[in-house]
Design a protein around this nucleic acid. Structure first.
Lengths: 297, 297
DNA sequence: TGTTATTACGAAATTCGTAATAATT
DNA sequence: AATTATTACGAATTTCGTAATAACA
C-alpha cells in the first residue's frame, strides 16, 4: 500500500475517471491504470468498477482509510520539516467561527504586529490545518462538560490548551413562547425546532448525545431540524434564528439570547498547536492567552 | 516516506542497532543503512546518531508519527482483507480487565459454543487489536460522564456501542477513617493516597481532569500516587487496596467497596467492532449484548 | 581485534512513458 | 466515431545483495 498508489487511487475515485486523474496528477493514463491495478492485486480485491468508474464497497472503505492515512502522512512530513525550518516570523491562525471570544481577539490585537493571517474554517478542519502546517496555531471550539477537554480527531500528536469557556445561550425569535423565561434547560428544548449549523454553530448531533434521556420518555432522537445552514457565517445564523427559522445555541459573547440554566454543557475554546513548543509570534500569542486564562479565573 | 522505510527506521530505533534490525527484518545491513539514509535525505534531517544508535530529537518525533501511521496502515489492510475473507466461524474477543461485567459474561456463556478465544489486554491496546484484525470484537471500558461515550484513540473507523454502565466504588482498607461512610464524593478523595493502575484499574490522569477544581483551593494536581501497578490483574489491585497501599476506584461488580455518591463519573463499557457489520459468532454476541442493554434500561 | 555502519558496484526488479489494442457510449 | 481503459514493451530508475572499506569499542 504505497502512498503514491493510494493518492492516485483517491484521485481516480474522486474524479471518477482514470484519464482525468492522470491529468490532475501529471501522469499518463497508463501509469494511473497500472497504479490502480497494482493496488488491486496487492489487496486482492477489485476497488473500482470501470465504465462508469465508481468505487466498489471495498473501494469505498479504502477511501475512508486513505483520507486519514494521507492526511497523517502530510502531517508527519510537515511536523518534521519544522525541525529544519527557520523560526517563523509571521503567524497564520486558523479559527472556527465561534472560537474567537474577546479574550482571543484582545490577545491578538496586543501582538506586536508582524504579518498575521487569520483564516476561518469549519471546526472539523482546524486540526488538519495545524497538523499539515497550513496554520501555525488553531482555535477550535465546541460544547463540552465544564472543564472537560474537547473531542478532537487525532490527525497527529497535537497539543490543546483551554483558552476560554463560557455559558451557552439560546437564540429565540422575538415572539417565541419561551422568550420571557430567564433561564432554560436543554431538556426543555428537545422538542423545539432547531437550526442545524454544524460549521457556524454547534453540531446538533453532540447535543443529542449530551441530553440524558429526553423528558417524559420522549421518543425519537430530539432536537428536530427545521433548517440546515452549511456556511460558516455566524451573523447569518443569528439572523435565521431571530427570523424564527428555528432555535440556535451559541456562546454568550457571540449572540444575545436567553441563558441556559445549570447547563451540563459550556462552550469551550482550545488553542491547538503541534506537540513541540511554538516559536516566534505563535509562541507570543500562546503565552498571552495562557496568562489571560489564569488571571481570569 | 515509504512505509517500508518507516518500518525499518522504527526497527533500527527500537533495537538501537542497524544489524539487529536487519536480522529482524530479513534484510542486509547494507539495505537497512540505505533505507535510513534514504529517509534522512527525503526528510532532509538526521534521524539517528550512530554509535551509539539513538534517535535525534527529530527522530523521536518521527517515531511518534510512525507508530500510529504504521498501525493505521495495518488496520486499513486488515479491514480490506475482511471483504474477501470467508465469514468467521470463530470468535476472538479482546477485553480490558474491567470490561467484562456480568451482562457480557452471560451473553458470552449463552453463545452456541464455537471456538471462542478471550484475551485480556491493557485498554489502550484494544482498539488497535480490533482494527488490525487481531480480535473480532473488543470490549473497552473507562470512566465517563453518565451516557457520554468513551474517548477512544481513533486508529481506524471503528464503531463503539455501549453495552454497560455502572456506578463506581472506592476500595478502602478495613481500618480506613472513611470506611464507615455510606457514600463519598470524588472531591473528598483528591488528597488521599491512590494506587495508579492504568491497565488493571482506571487511569488517575482521567480523574484529575474530571474533578473540577479541588476542594478549598487544593494546590497541586490531586490524587497523589503511593504505588503504581502495571499489570492487568484486578485481584492484585483489590488486594493492594485492601492491604492499605492506597485507594482504588473500580466498577461495582468488580469489587466490594464504598459507593461514590452523585459521581460525575460512571464506569462504562463499550463493544468495539469495525465499521461494517460483524459476521458469524461476533454478530451473534453483538446482538445478544444489544438486547441485554435495552431490556435492562 | 571484533563488531558495526557506510560505500561501491552490479544484478534484478520496479516504474513510467510510448504506442498499440480493446472496450464502452 | 470518439472517448477511455488496458496491455505490451522498453528505457530509466530504484532496490537490494555482495563485498570492500571505514569507524568505533
Amino acid at each position: 500500500m504505497d502512498p503514491h498508489l493510494l493518492r492516485t487511487y483517491v484521485a481516480v475515485a474522486r474524479l471518477a475517471s482514470f484519464s482525468a486523474a492522470a491529468r490532475a496528477l501529471g501522469y499518463t493514463q497508463s501509469a494511473v491504470s497500472q497504479h490502480v491495478a497494482a493496488l488491486e492485486t496487492d489487496l486482492g480485491l477489485p476497488l473500482l468498477t470501470r465504465r462508469p468508474v465508481a468505487p466498489t464497497p471495498a473501494g469505498e472503505r479504502l477511501l475512508e482509510h486513505a483520507g486519514s492515512l494521507l492526511l497523517r502522512l502530510d502531517a508527519a512530513r510537515a511536523d518534521l520539516a519544522r525541525f529544519a525550518a527557520a523560526p517563523r516570523r509571521t503567524l497564520t491562525l486558523a479559527a472556527a467561527p465561534l472560537a474567537l471570544p474577546p479574550t482571543v481577539l484582545d490577545a491578538l490585537a496586543a501582538l506586536p504586529a508582524t504579518g498575521v493571517t487569520l483564516r476561518t474554517l469549519p471546526r472539523t478542519e482546524i486540526p488538519a490545518a495545524v497538523a499539515t502546517g497550513a496554520a501555525d496555531l488553531g482555535l477550535v471550539d465546541g460544547p463540552a462538560a465544564p472543564s472537560d477537554p474537547l473531542r478532537l480527531p487525532d490527525v497527529a500528536p497535537l497539543t490543546a490548551r483551554r483558552v476560554g469557556e463560557e455559558p451557552l445561550v439560546v437564540v429565540l425569535p422575538a415572539g417565541h413562547p419561551l422568550a420571557g423565561r430567564a433561564g432554560l434547560g436543554l431538556a426543555d428544548l428537545v422538542d423545539a425546532r432547531w437550526i442545524d449549523a454544524p460549521d457556524a454553530g454547534l453540531p446538533l448531533e453532540r447535543l443529542r448525545a449530551a441530553v440524558p434521556a429526553g423528558p417524559a420518555g420522549s421518543a425519537g432522537q430530539g432536537f428536530p431540524v427545521s433548517l440546515r445552514y452549511e456556511g460558516t457565517d455566524v451573523r447569518t445564523l443569528t439572523a435565521l434564528a431571530a427570523a424564527g427559522h428555528g432555535l440556535a445555541l451559541l456562546p454568550r459573547t457571540a449572540a444575545d439570547g436567553v441563558p441556559l440554566t445549570a447547563p451540563r454543557l459550556v462552550h469551550r475554546v482550545e488553542l491547538l498547536h503541534t506537540g513541540r513548543e511554538p516559536t516566534g509570534p505563535a509562541a507570543e500569542l500562546a503565552r498571552r492567552l495562557a496568562t489571560a486564562e489564569t488571571t481570569a479565573r
